[in-house]
Structures are given as C-alpha cells and as structure tokens.
Amino acid sequence: MISALSGFALIGVIVLAGRLARSRAGLPADAEAVLGRLVYAVMTPCLLFTGVAEAELHVLLSEPLLVSAGAAFACFGAHTLLTRHGDRGTRIVGALTAGYTNANYIGIPVATYVLGDAALVVPIVVLQLLVVTPVALTLLEVATTGHASLRTTVTAPLRNPLIVAVLAGVVSSLTGVRLPAVLAEPIATIGSAAVPVVLLAFGMSLSGRPVLAPGPDRTATIAAVVLKTVAMPVIAFLLAAGLGLPRDAAYAVTVLAALPTAQNIFLYAQSFGTGLVVARDAIFLSTVCCVPVLLLIAVLFSR
C-alpha cells in the first residue's frame, strides 16, 4: 500500500506545481484554458490512440468487467436522479464524476502494488475509452450546443478529436495494422504529456476559489464524491457476491471501484465550458477521500 500511495503523491506534487504557477508565475488569465484546449485537441487524442491500439479488446468480455460496468452505470444513474437541478451540461459532468474511474494514473499503481497485477485495470480503461467516453462527449456536445437533431447527434462523435482517436485505435487493434515507428513514436511521446499537463491545468484551477464553496454546485459535488468513494465500491462488492466471483476477484473489483474520479472529466468540462466547479471539486475530494477507503477495504478483506 505504501508503494501504491506514490501515485497519489505524484499527482499531488504536479497539481501543487500548477497552483503555484497560477499564483506566482505571472501567467495570463486564460493560461489553464489554453492548456486545456491543447491537451484536448492534440495530446489526449495521441494518448487515446496509442492506448486503444495496443489494448486487447477481448478483455471487455469478462465477469469482473460486468461488475465494474454495473457499479459505474449505477452511480451515473444515481447522481442523475439525485441532482435534477442545473443545466444539462453540468448534470452530465456531475454524473460522470460519480462513476468515471481514474484507471490510469491511480488505477495502474494500485492494481500493481495492492492487487499484484496491473492488467486487472485494463478492462476498465477499455470500457471507459470505447463506451463511456464517446457517449459522454456526444451528450455534452448536444447539451452545450443546443443542437439535438438526428444529424447532429449522429455526426457529433466524428467532430470530436478524442472519439476519432479512439475509433482509429480500435481499427488498428482489430486489423493489426501499426503505424511506422517514425509516426508512432512521436504520437506516443506527445500522448505521454497529456496527463501531467492536465494535472497542471487542474492545479491552476484550484487557485483563487476554495473547494466546496457555497453555491449551486455544492450538493452535486458532495453527491458525486459519496457515490464515487463509498457507494460504488459497495455496489461492486454486492454485484461480485451476486455473481459468485472468487474472493480475490471480488477484492479486486471492490478496490478498483473505490478509485477516485479521473482527471479526464475536468478536461471534458473545460473543453465544453460546463460543470467545471463540480468536476474540479469532485476530482480533488474523491482523490483525498479514497485513500482511507482503500485502506479500509484492504483491512476488511484481510480478515
């Protein structure tokens, strides 16, 4: 567990660097917005393409993934029912914060050092990239542009660089066709910068406004954090028990369900200009709160 906590420490240091840069480096007022657009349009598509192209798509067919997916969608739905006020874009972002797991930056070290197998987190990564992300981005596109025609709904994914990158990665994975090294290596290098830059932009957004400040977003944020760090692992455990998963598998899906909200949600909120406060506060609080939850799960399963 001590080794796994290094992932949290790494995130914390980069976020702190972003906050200090915003308050002391004399950056322009729109610095984090510019970083966000750069990550959204260039870095993250490269990261997604590389990740999906190298993924084993058959991992979507597994009982543990059914548990993880069931817990996630239950939390998406619960948040939508609990927070019926506010604009549609904010409600979509809020629902995502309640069930979209930080499977990469926190999930990989936790799967490696706590569960002993980094591959356990791969199915969740694939599910979120291939199913949740395209649907969520399409809904945000429709909600924020106000265009809900059939043509707009159908073509929205093809106008989104993240979804295009995922689809290209799927084609590469299924066909076995790989880009030549002269292209693949620069794409992978650019993609590797996405997470640190998102964390820097996230840290910048924390400067000047306290977390959980009074306002219409406070209830949605609290609901998201409780669902993500408490309800989701409980639901995952109950589903695992209902499917009769072995103890080790039940432990794994429960731990993975307790991971915090992914920083991707902040990127989506920033890109579409909606739900920024909910995304920022839920990511920060779920990252802090999941540490004692993970420790508690480890203690309970050790008995």
Score class of each variant (00 low, 15 high):
residue 174 L to E: 07
residue 153 T to I: 15
residue 126 V to I: 14
residue 244 G to P: 14
residue 215 G to E: 02
residue 84 R to E: 01
residue 44 T to W: 03
residue 194 A to V: 00
residue 37 R to E: 15
residue 151 R to G: 15
residue 37 R to V: 13
residue 239 L to N: 12
residue 35 L to S: 01
residue 244 G to S: 14
residue 222 I to Q: 02
residue 239 L to P: 12
residue 13 V to I: 14
residue 138 T to I: 14
residue 21 A to D: 08
residue 16 L to E: 08
residue 247 R to Q: 11
residue 271 S to E: 14
residue 185 E to C: 05
residue 30 D to G: 09
residue 297 I to Q: 04
residue 80 T to N: 04
residue 75 C to S: 03
residue 132 V to G: 04
residue 39 V to T: 02
residue 99 G to H: 01
residue 118 A to Q: 13
residue 75 C to G: 05
residue 85 H to P: 02
residue 224 A to N: 02
residue 211 V to W: 04
residue 136 A to R: 12
residue 47 L to H: 01
residue 95 A to K: 08
residue 38 L to V: 12
residue 37 R to L: 14
residue 123 P to V: 12
residue 160 N to Q: 14
residue 211 V to C: 10
residue 110 V to D: 04
residue 250 A to M: 15
residue 149 S to V: 07
residue 250 A to T: 13
residue 102 N to S: 04
residue 255 V to G: 01
residue 42 V to A: 13
residue 6 S to N: 10
residue 290 C to G: 05
residue 167 L to W: 10
residue 119 A to V: 05
residue 68 S to D: 14
residue 233 P to Q: 12
residue 125 V to L: 15
residue 43 M to N: 13
residue 197 V to W: 01
residue 116 G to P: 13
residue 247 R to A: 13
residue 279 A to C: 04
residue 197 V to N: 02
residue 94 G to W: 00
residue 11 I to N: 01
residue 207 S to P: 07
residue 280 R to Q: 09
residue 21 A to E: 08
residue 269 A to Y: 00
residue 258 A to D: 08
residue 54 E to F: 06
residue 98 A to T: 03
residue 242 G to D: 11
residue 226 V to R: 04
residue 136 A to T: 13
residue 239 L to W: 09
residue 221 T to D: 00
residue 192 S to H: 12
residue 289 C to I: 15
residue 139 L to V: 14
residue 277 V to M: 11
residue 13 V to D: 03
residue 115 L to K: 08
residue 91 R to T: 02
residue 2 I to C: 03
